[in-house]
Amino acid sequence: MKSTVSRRNFIKGGLAGTVAATVLKENTSQAASFEGYPEGMGVLVDLTRCVGCRSCEAACNQEQKLPQPAKPFNDFSVFDEIEHGQKRRTDETRYTVVNRYDVPGQDHPLFRKIQCNHCQEPACLTSCFVNAYTKTPEGAVIYNAKVCVGCRTCMIACPFYIPTFKYSSAFNPRIMKCVFCYDTRLKDGKPPACVEACPQEALTFGKRSELIKIGQQRIRETSGKYEDHIYGEHEVGGTAWMYLSSVPFDKVGFDTHVPKEPILNLVKDFLGIVPMVLTIWPALFAGFHLLATRKDWLKGKTEDDHEEE
């Protein structure tokens, strides 16, 4: 039996590889041209104004029809709840949470509201392999439970630990996260329920670009009151929800080590090699094969010649 590969088989093999390459070719252009919506809306959270009344939590709970919590919203003992050494976080029953921080040197505690920050280039969106997330022109990052597979990569990718999973459901699980009240309010230009409920004007709703100006103005006009930084202006490529604080941000639970560029940029290098491997590998390895089996092929050829004679 001849052990060499005939030209025909070689071409067939090469073709199979090329077809595989063409069929599997990834389309990365969609993500590459995504620039976010600079005219989208956002919210500026001023930590110096928040008194920790939890009205926003209550409003969110009602607006999003979430289950009633065990402790009522006027129970402030929740600020002392610690799980795994961590303060409260979002879960499948609450899209937003206010936590208290006793910062040394401050005569009163500071409160920080967390919810989805609605990134300009959301990591959840770019890591989702079924496109369950959408960044709307209004600025919200919304989620489509109909296509979600439940892989929870978005939860891995979110640098703010925001998306949560409805683990308790076997047949109808889904990601639970703040959607900026998109369906009920933002779509019609109205501010989200939490902003409307805030009695202290700690939350300012407006165009993101305007909010940055407002934030800068507050920092400038009250010299020394604020840290000279708007958290969210540049963090992970910019977020629609941004924060002003009177103390360094890491003192009030913010992760100051998140990259200053979209999370997507960190996987671009890898995605970039994909077309290269898909196109070059078939030819390269078919070539290796020919080189490696050249001796057999030559031997086979001389035998063929003899047979012909």
Binding site: A31, V149, Y167, R174
Partner: peptide, 25 residues
Amino acid sequence: DLGMPWRLPYPMVVSLGPAAVLFLV
């Protein structure tokens, strides 16, 4: 592990997110 294991073929046929690393996987 998947929340909705019956949707395993979704990234292939129903809703494609080709820019994600997991799509490639």
